[in-house]
Design a protein around this nucleic acid. Structure first.
Length: 299
DNA sequence: CCCCAGGCATTCA
DNA sequence: TGAATGCATGGG
């Protein structure tokens, strides 16, 4: 079928291939499917599920095509476009980042090697919070497994051409769910409780992405998130980075980041948060991008 | 059996 | 305010 819905003009310093490499890092990823030249993802619009594929087309444009499902109206296409802009951070000018990276011994090689990679966002607040919560203090493979189970159990599935596509469940799905039920998916009690707390806050509109973005500063948004039990510094900084699109967010507690720095600098131990902050001084304003690129050295 | 993983809450000085 | 400790779970 392959209906072209619309095209988005891509910014300079965008390379879909570099983004796909990152997105392709786990075979357990269940919320989108990458191929050599693009990525497909399921959305839900008024008319039902909609399967969309993104790929690059002539003139440095991103083509958005409908593979299957409901036909989006003009308004829905605008929402979809907005989602994609946030997903790939398309409206950010990366020139300043590459300028500082070129002068940085740690970032320089990574910036050249992955040039055009952007922070792959998680525009939906509930999904972003859940992903961070699931990822607390477990290895990444297990975090993906937890997300996969949660999605398969509570999300929405769509079969098309022999593949299954999933959509992450909305927070309202968890209204009647008990902690014990989530624990059967191998979430710890604490993770299960935090997921339910967040689901309830978002469903009742006590918490929203719009509200967080409307706060005076990203730091204020972080403070707001920290008030929620089960959400600590790492989770709130991670959400700032992946959902609120704050390029200056710096998850210093991140063990992956610590390990990369240890590896790249040849330290015989992991750096302390204080040492990381010192190291990150030249990255002022771009700490999240620095972190994202540094993560690339891990896989 | 031990250590680690894209932490958090609690306690104690 | 900040360091130390307990905690929960699977993987290697």
């Amino acid at each position: 079928m392959n209906d072209l819905l619309f095209k988005l003009q891509l910014p300079e310093d965008f390379d879909l291939g570099a983004c796909l490499e990152y997105m392709n890092r786990s075979p357990l990823e269940c919320l989108f499917r990458t191929d050599e030249a693009g990525v497909s993802r399921m959305f839900r619009i008024e008319g039902g599920p909609l399967l969309v594929r993104l790929s690059v087309s002539e003139g440095h444009k991103l083509s958005v095509t409908r593979l299957h499902g409901a036909v989006p109206g003009a308004l829905e296409q605008e929402q979809l476009a907005r989602y994609i802009v946030e997903w790939f951070d398309l409206d950010r000018d990366l020139a300043p980042f590459y300028k500082l990276a070129a002068a940085d011994p740690l970032l320089g090689p990574l910036a050249s090697q992955h040039r055009g990679l952007r922070i792959i966002g998680i525009p939906d607040l509930f999904e972003a919070l859940c992903w961070a919560i699931l990822g607390q203090q477990v290895n990444l493979a297990f975090a993906y497994r937890l997300k996969q189970r949660l999605t398969a159990e509570y999300g929405e599935a769509l079969e098309w051409e022999g593949q299954t596509y999933y959509r992450f469940p909305g927070p309202e799905v968890f209204a009647e769910v008990q902690v014990e039920e989530l624990c059967t998916l191998q979430l710890t009690r604490s993770k299960a409780q935090t997921v339910l707390t967040v689901a309830s806050l978002i469903t009742s509109r006590e918490l929203s992405r719009e509200e967080l973005l409307a706060l005076p500063s990203p730091a204020a948004a972080e403070q707001r998130l920290l008030q929620i039990r089960g959400i600590g510094p790492w989770t709130s900084q991670y959400v700032r980075m992946r959902c609120l699109r704050d390029a200056s967010s710096f998850p210093v507690g991140d063990v992956g980041l610590q390990n990369v720095i240890k590896f790249l600098t040849g330290m015989d131990r992991k750096p302390t948060p204080a040492e990381l902050l010192e190291l990150a001084r030249p990255w002022q304003g771009w700490e999240a991008y620095a972190t994202f690129y540094l993560w690339r050295a891990l896989y």
